[in-house]
């Protein structure tokens, strides 16, 4: 993502104290910044502090934005770093080892687990059931338990719909690492949902 003229002129007007530029910046980015901050921190209070920090940083550092990357990428990067910092020290409160939530395989490459479990397909259940009540709680709990770097990648890819390359640029990881984290995060969530919705053991 390359910065364009419009990004640069928006920041220039912001530096000159133009309130309309601030409105435009907030209109374009505040909802996305909040969503990403909440997605990583998973706490409304923390997300709010991150949003304020991010916009203060953007106002303060607008001179140093050189347009090498798009403004959106730059803002996503500031947000990701601020949200991960906010999580520092709170790590492992609820996060569990991801390995336990990934599918396991036999030596011949077939899935481990009983037949009814590996055949469980709840994807056609009504979406209002999948997104409400206990199932929603299971999914929210599973997202809470993901390690924060996995949540960052999951939100950037599946909610903000950035490409693997863009996510790598924002998080400073390699593309293979982004792909691996995304896949493992989705698998962990799928496993939790299937344990809840699949046949009772």
């Amino acid at each position: 993502m390359q910065g364009d003229e419009a990004d640069l002129s928006l920041l220039e007007r912001l530096r000159a104290g133009d309130a309309n530029a601030l409105e435009a910046l907030m209109g374009q980015y505040s909802a996305r910044v909040y969503r990403l901050a909440y997605g990583i921190t998973r706490a409304a209070g923390d997300a709010e502090e991150v949003v304020q920090d991010v916009f203060l940083t953007v106002c303060r550092k607008s001179e140093s934005f050189e347009g090498r990357a798009a403004l959106g990428s730059w803002i996503y990067r500031i947000t990701t770093n601020a949200a991960l910092n906010k999580r520092r020290g709170k790590r492992q409160e609820v996060e569990t080892a991801l390995e336990e939530q990934l599918p396991s395989f036999k030596a011949d490459g077939h899935r481990e687990g009983d037949r009814a479990y590996v055949l469980a397909d709840w994807s056609q259940n009504p979406e209002r059931d999948l997104l409400s009540g206990e199932t929603r709680e299971v999914l929210q709990g599973a997202i809470d338990r993901l390690p924060e770097h996995y949540r960052a990648v999951l939100v950037l890819r599946d909610v903000e719909e950035l490409s693997n390359e863009e996510v790598a640029e924002v998080t400073g990881e390699s593309v293979p690492s982004v792909k691996s984290r995304l896949h493992r995060a989705r698998m962990a969530l799928r496993e939790q949902l299937t344990r809840h919705l699949g046949p009772r053991a």
């Binding site: 909040y34 909440y38 997605g39 999914l139 929210q140 599946d158 909610v159 969530l189």
Partner: peptide
């Protein structure tokens, strides 16, 4: 589903 529950409004 994960994308939908992560789409929170400010």
């Amino acid at each position: 589903l994960a994308a939908k529950v992560n789409r929170v409004d400010m």
